[in-house]
Design a protein around this nucleic acid. Structure first.
Length: 983
RNA sequence: GCCGAAGUGGCGGAAUUGGCAGACGCGCUGGAUUCAAAAUCCAGUUCUGGCAACAGAGUGUGGGUUCGAUUCCCACCUUCGGCACCA
C-alpha cells in the first residue's frame, strides 16, 4: 500500500475524496426545513438512472447549478439544491425482460452507481432529500395527485379546476337517475377514460402519447406505431391550453423555448361556421338545387331568430376556419374519413368508392399518412352543402388531409388561398376562385432595380395573373374582391366584420382551437405507477362500467410481485397477470378489479420539485408552509429535449394543484435555462471508394439512408477517419496533405456507442480530477451552446489548477505548507486593480451564467500573481473564494493551507471596490477616417479637449494632419479620438 | 415547407447602449532547464508581402446606414435543432 501523507503537489485523487468526506460528515449542505434568509431554489432536471451510468452531458448542467448554489450560499442566501432519480420507465423493464433481473433491483443498482458518480463530482446537494420516483413513499403521492385530477373538473366560466362535487348537474341529467349523473361527472373529470384511436406500438407492447411518436415511429426505439381504437385514461390538458399559453409570458425562459411550447399548444383563432346540408345524401347539386335551396332559406330564417346553437344539429356541417374572410372563395368542402356524417352524406352511387376510401384511411398508420403526404387523395360523397354567406351549393368531399381530431373534422376548402386545398383541387380538377387582390410587392433598396430585380418583378406579375385565373395559390392577406359587400376591405378588418355578421345571423361565431390534444396517460407496461382506480364487477365477474377511486387512506397502491411482465403484443397490460388478491379487492362486499394500466414515465417528473421541499412527509405530498416558503423554483437547468413534454406536463399538473389550493404559485419554474449538447471530439473524415481511392467531399452526397454515395455515379462510399496531421487547410476547406484535391469534412458528432466517441466522466476524473472536469465543462463555451469535447482542453484547465496550486502551496516542501512567496503584506495599486477587476468580473459573470468568461478572468489573475513576489496573502484568500464554486475541492484544500480550519462554503463572498479598479492613465486609439494610426496615453479623467490635444501632440498624428483638411474631430471620452479628413 | 439558434485565427471561444477584432485556453514554432524525457518557465503565433520598420486585407456572401459596423437595416447562402397536412 502506498504511504499516505500530505502531498505538496496538487493531487486531486487525495484532495477530492477528503473534502467529499468532510462535506458528507459535517452535513455541510443540509438545508433547513424553512429558509433562514432569502431563499433560492435551484433545480437540476433529475436523471433517468440508466445502466450506462452518468455521461458527460449530466455534469454540464449540474456544475452550472452547483456554481450558482455555492456562490449564493456565500452571499448569504438559503439555498435549496436537491437531487433525485426519475427511475420508472421502459429501459429498466426492457433490461428486465432480457436479463431476468427484476426492474426494482436493476433500478436500485443504477441509482447507487449514479449516486456514487454524482458524489465524486462534489456537487453540493442536500443528500438528505434524495428521492426516486420509484420509491413507494414517493409514488404514493403521485397516485394522490392523480386522484386530485380525477376529482377535478374545469369550470370554463371561472377558468379554473374545481372539485367534481361542485359540478352543476343539468336538470334533465338529474332526472335520468344516478347512473346518468355519474356518467355526466365522469365526462367532465380532468382524468377520464376514453375510447379513441391511439398510437399502439406492438414492439413495445404499449400505447404512446402523440408526443412520443415521431414520423410514425416510437421516439424510444424507433418501432413502428399503428393507430387502433382502445379505451385509455386521458388527462384533460386541453382545458388548460389557454392558461398554459398565456402564463408563458410571466416566465424568464428563452424566447425559443417559449415559442416551442406555444407552437405545441398551437392556439389559433377564427370562426365556426355552419353549412346547411338539409337531410343529407340527396345529391342536391347544381343540377337539382330546388329543394335544398328552399330548405336553406327556411333554415337561415330560423337561425336568424334562434341564434347559433352550442352543438350543431343534423342538418348542418360545422366547420372551423382561421380565414372566415375567404368564405366567398369556398368551392368545395372536405370532411375527415372518420367524420360521423360520412354515411349520411354518401349517395348510393358514391357508396362503394367512399367505403373503400375510408377503409384504406383507417388502416393507414401515421407513418403512411405522412409519407404519402406528397399527393392528396380523396373521394366525392355525392352530396352538397350550402355556403351560408352566398347561398351557393358546393360539393362535399372526403379526404385524409383533414384530421378528425382537430377543429370539427370538417373544413370549407378555399383552393385559391390555401396551399393544401389548392393541391387537392388540382388533383380532382375542382374550381378555384380567388377572392383577394394580390398586393404588389414593395422593392427593397434604392435607385434603379437591377436586372435580377426586373426579372423577379416580371415573374411576380405572371404569378399574380395565375392566381386571378385560378392556376396558382395566394395564402397571404390583402384587399377583398368578389366578396359582395366586403369588397375592398383589408383582411384583418374583413375577419372582424364577417365574424360579427355571421354571428348576428346565427350561422357562425368566433372560435378558438388548439393543436394540443388531451394527454394519453395510460401505458400497458409493468414498471410504472399503478392507477389508484378500481373497476366494479357484477356477480358474474363482469365489469359493470362503474369505477371507484381508491381512497386516500388506502394509498399507496404498490406494484405486485410479477414473475412475467413481458409484453405479448396484445393490449392487455402485464398487470392482468397479477396475483388474485392484488387484482381483485373486495370492498363492502363488492368485488372490484384493479386498473391494470400504469402511468407513463412523465408522471413522476411532473411534481418531484415539490416533493424535494418536504421529502419525508407522510401526511401530505408537501407541507403548505414549506411549499409557500420555497416555491417557485428560481432556476431550473436541463436539456432542451424536455422543452416541450416534461415542462408542459409539469406546468399542467402544477396549475391543477394550484386551482385545488395545494400550491401557492401559478407556475413552477420561474427561470429556465437549457444547456447545450456536448458532442464528441472533432473528427476529420474523408471518403473512399470500395477499392480505396479517395473521393473529394465536394463529390459526395447522401442517399436515402444517409449513407455517403458518389454524387455522379451514385456508388457507395466509405467514410474514413483521417488523422489531423494528414490534413491541412486550403482556403475554406480541409484537404488531404498527400492530395490537395481531396476535400475532407471536419465535424464533431453526437456521442454514441456505435461511433465510439463517448467520453466517460469516471475516466476523466481518474486522470484529471473532478475539479478539472467541472472547470472544463464550464470553460468549453456558453452554457446554452452545442460544443465539441476536447481532451486537450481538459488538460489545459488542469494546468490552470496546477498553477493556481503552486501560486499558493509550497511544492518543494515535504509537508503541506504555504508557498514562501505568500506573505501578510498590503496589496500595491496594480495588485489591487487586478484583484478587484477579477472579483467584479467573476461575480457579474456568475450572475449572468457566463461561466466561461469568469474562468478566463481567474486565469488572468493567476497569470498575473504567479509573477508577483512576494504575494499578498489576502489576495490569495480572495482568489480561493472566487474559485470555490467552480473547483470546490482544491479551493477547500488551499483555504486550509492558507490557515483556515473549517470549510469555506459559508465564507463571505468577496466584493470589489470600483475606486481601486480605476487607472490613472488609459491608452486610447487615435483614428484618421476611422482607421487606427497610433495609441496615446491620456489621464483617465481627461475631457474632450485634453484628449484631442493629446492626440494632436503625437508626432505621427501631427505629421499625418500637417497638410490635411480636418473636417471634423470625434472624441469619445475614455474611448477614442477620430479625425475626419477630407481630401 | 415552417419555426428557432448559430456562422469570428489551425481549434474551442472573447468582444454588441456601434468605438483598438481575436481576451482566455488548446495547438503550433523557437528558446531555457535536463544525461534524456516528462513536467515547468520564457518568447512568438489572424492572413498576405517584407530581414525589419511597416503596408494592405480581414468577423458566412452581397448591398445599405454611419466619422466609425462582428454589433444596426435589407436580401441571400450554409450548418445545427425542432415541427411537419392543425384548415
Amino acid at each position: 500500500m502506498r504511504e499516505f501523507r500530505p502531498m505538496p503537489r496538487y493531487n486531486p485523487s487525495t484532495v477530492e475524496p477528503k473534502w467529499q468526506g468532510f462535506w458528507s460528515q459535517n452535513r455541510t449542505f443540509a438545508t433547513p426545513k424553512l429558509p433562514a434568509s432569502d431563499k433560492l431554489y435551484v433545480l437540476d432536471m433529475f436523471p433517468y438512472p440508466s445502466g450506462a451510468g452518468l455521461h458527460v452531458g449530466h455534469p454540464e448542467g449540474y456544475t452550472a447549478t452547483d456554481i450558482v448554489c455555492r456562490f449564493q450560499r456565500m452571499r448569504g442566501k438559503s439555498v435549496l439544491h436537491p437531487m433525485g432519480f426519475d427511475s420508472f420507465g421502459l429501459p429498466a423493464e426492457e433490461y428486465a425482460i432480457k436479463s431476468g433481473v427484476p426492474p426494482r433491483e436493476s433500478t436500485e443498482k443504477n441509482i447507487a452507481t449514479f449516486t456514487r458518480q454524482l458524489k465524486r463530482l462534489g456537487f453540493s446537494y442536500d443528500w438528505d432529500r434524495v428521492l426516486a420516483t420509484t420509491d413507494v413513499e414517493y409514488f404514493r403521492w403521485t397516485q394522490w395527485i392523480f386522484l386530485q385530477l380525477y376529482d377535478t373538473w374545469y369550470d370554463k366560466q371561472s377558468e379554473r379546476g374545481r372539485p367534481i362535487a361542485e359540478l352543476p348537474i343539468p336538470e334533465e341529467i338529474k332526472q335520468a337517475g344516478d347512473d346518468a349523473v355519474r356518467d355526466y361527472q365522469d365526462d367532465h373529470r380532468l382524468a377520464y377514460q376514453h375510447e379513441a384511436p391511439v398510437n399502439w406500438c406492438p414492439a413495445l407492447g404499449t400505447v404512446l402519447a402523440n408526443e412520443e411518436v415521431k414520423d410514425g415511429k416510437s421516439e424510444r426505439g424507433g418501432h413502428p406505431v399503428v393507430r387502433m381504437p382502445l379505451r385509455q385514461w386521458m388527462l384533460r390538458i386541453t382545458a388548460y391550453a389557454d392558461r398554459l399559453e398565456r402564463d408563458l409570458e410571466s416566465l424568464d425562459w428563452s424566447y425559443g423555448i417559449k415559442k416551442l411550447q406555444s407552437d405545441w399548444i398551437g392556439r389559433s383563432t377564427g370562426a365556426d361556421v355552419d353549412f346547411f346540408i338539409g337531410e343529407g345524401s340527396r345529391g342536391d347539386g347544381p343540377g337539382d338545387e330546388g329543394s335544398l335551396q328552399s330548405a336553406f332559406e327556411d333554415w337561415k330564417c330560423g337561425r336568424a331568430s334562434s341564434g347559433f346553437p352550442e352543438k350543431p344539429g343534423e342538418d348542418v356541417l360545422r366547420i372551423y376556419t382561421t380565414r372566415p374572410d375567404t368564405l366567398f372563395g369556398a368551392t368545395y368542402m372536405v370532411i375527415a374519413p372518420e367524420h360521423p356524417f360520412v354515411e349520411r352524406l354518401t349517395t348510393a352511387e358514391q357508396s362503394a368508392a367512399v367505403t373503400k376510401y375510408c377503409e384504406e384511411a383507417a388502416h393507414k398508420s401515421d407513418l403512411d399518412r405522412t409519407q404519402l403526404a406528397k399527393k392528396k387523395t380523396g373521394v366525392f360523397t355525392g352530396s352538397y352543402a350550402i355556403n351560408p354567406v352566398n347561398g351557393e351549393a358546393i360539393p362535399i368531399w372526403i379526404a385524409d388531409y383533414v384530421l378528425i381530431s382537430y377543429g370539427t373534422g370538417a373544413i370549407m376548402a378555399v383552393p385559391a388561398h390555401d396551399e393544401r386545398d389548392f393541391e387537392f383541387a388540382q388533383v380532382f380538377e375542382l374550381p378555384v376562385r380567388s377572392v383577394y387582390e394580390v398586393p404588389i410587392k414593395a422593392f427593397h433598396g434604392t435607385g434603379e432595380p437591377s436586372e435580377d430585380a426586373k426579372a423577379e418583378s416580371e415573374q411576380f406579375y405572371q404569378w399574380r395573373e395565375e392566381v386571378y385565373e385560378g392556376r396558382a395559390c395566394f395564402s397571404g392577406e390583402g384587399k377583398a374582391i368578389r366578396s359582395g359587400k366586403y369588397d375592398g376591405i383589408e383582411t384583418p378588418e374583413f375577419k372582424k366584420r364577417i365574424i360579427e355578421d355571421v354571428s348576428s345571423e346565427g350561422v357562425g361565431r368566433g372560435a378558438v382551437n388548439y393543436k394540443l390534444r388531451d394527454w394519453l396517460f395510460s401505458r400497458q407496461r409493468f414498471w410504472g405507477e399503478p392507477f389508484p382506480i378500481l373497476h366494479e364487477l357484477d356477480a358474474e365477474g363482469k365489469p359493470t362500467g362503474r369505477i371507484r377511486a381508491v381512497s386516500e387512506s388506502e394509498l399507496p397502491v404498490n406494484l405486485p410481485h410479477l414473475d412475467d411482465f413481458k409484453p405479448h403484443g396484445r393490449p392487455e397490460p402485464p398487470l392482468d397477470k397479477a396475483p388474485e388478491d392484488w387484482l381483485y379487492p373486495v370492498i363492502d362486499g363488492v368485488k372490484y378489479k384493479r386498473e391494470t394500466n400504469t402511468m407513463p414515465q412523465w408522471a413522476g417528473s411532473c411534481w418531484y420539485y415539490l416533493r424535494f421541499i418536504d421529502p419525508r412527509n407522510d401526511k401530505a405530498f408537501v407541507d403548505p408552509e414549506k411549499e409557500r416558503a420555497w416555491m417557485p423554483v428560481d432556476l431550473y437547468i436541463g436539456g432542451a429535449e424536455h422543452a416541450v413534454l416534461h415542462l408542459l406536463y409539469a406546468r399542467f399538473w402544477h396549475k391543477v394543484l394550484y386551482d385545488r389550493g395545494h400550491v401557492s404559485t401559478i407556475e413552477p419554474f420561474q427561470k429556465l435555462v437549457n444547456q447545450g449538447m456536448i458532442l464528441g471530439e472533432v473528427e476529420m473524415t474523408g471518403y473512399q471508394t470500395e477499392s480505396g481511392d479517395w473521393v473529394s467531399a465536394a463529390d459526395v452526397t447522401e442517399d436515402d439512408e444517409k449513407q455517403p454515395v458518389h454524387k455522379k455515379s451514385g456508388a457507395a462510399l466509405k467514410s474514413v477517419k483521417v488523422e489531423n496531421e494528414d490534413a491541412e487547410k486550403s482556403g475554406e476547406n480541409f484537404v488531404l496533405k498527400a492530395d490537395q484535391s481531396i476535400r475532407l469534412v471536419s465535424r464533431a458528432h453526437k456521442m454514441s456507442k456505435s461511433r465510439g466517441n463517448v467520453i466517460n466522466p469516471d475516466d476523466v476524473i481518474e486522470e484529471y480530477g473532478a475539479d478539472a472536469l467541472r472547470l472544463y465543462e464550464m470553460f468549453m463555451g456558453p452554457l446554452e451552446a452545442t460544443k465539441p469535447w476536447s481532451m486537450q482542453g481538459v488538460s489545459g484547465v488542469k494546468g490552470f489548477l496546477d498553477r493556481a496550486w503552486r501560486m499558493i502551496v509550497e511544492t518543494d516542501a515535504e509537508q503541506m505548507q504555504l508557498n514562501d512567496a505568500v506573505n501578510d503584506i498590503e496589496l500595491n495599486a496594480d495588485q489591487n486593480r487586478v484583484l478587484h477587476r477579477t472579483i467584479k468580473a467573476v461575480t457579474e459573470d456568475i450572475e449572468s451564467l457566463s461561466f466561461n468568461t469568469a474562468i478566463a478572468r481567474m486565469m488572468e489573475f493567476v497569470n498575473f500573481f504567479t509573477k508577483e513576489e512576494p504575494r499578498p496573502k489576502r489576495a490569495m484568500e480572495q482568489f480561493v473564494l472566487l474559485l470555490a464554486p467552480y473547483a470546490p475541492h482544491i479551493a477547500e484544500e488551499m483555504w486550509n493551507v492558507l490557515g483556515h480550519s473549517s470549510s469555506l462554503a459559508y465564507e463571505t463572498w468577496p466584493t470589489h471596490d470600483e475606486a481601486l479598479i480605476k487607472e490613472a492613465t488609459i491608452e486610447i486609439p487615435v483614428q484618421i477616417n476611422g482607421k487606427v494610426k497610433v495609441t496615446v496615453n491620456v489621464a483617465s479623467d481627461a475631457d474632450r479637449a485634453a484628449m484631442e490635444a493629446a492626440a494632436r501632440a503625437d508626432e505621427k498624428v501631427a505629421g499625418l494632419l500637417k497638410n490635411a483638411n480636418v473636417a471634423k474631430v470625434i472624441v469619445v471620452p475614455n474611448r477614442l479620438v477620430n479625425f475626419v479628413v477630407k481630401p
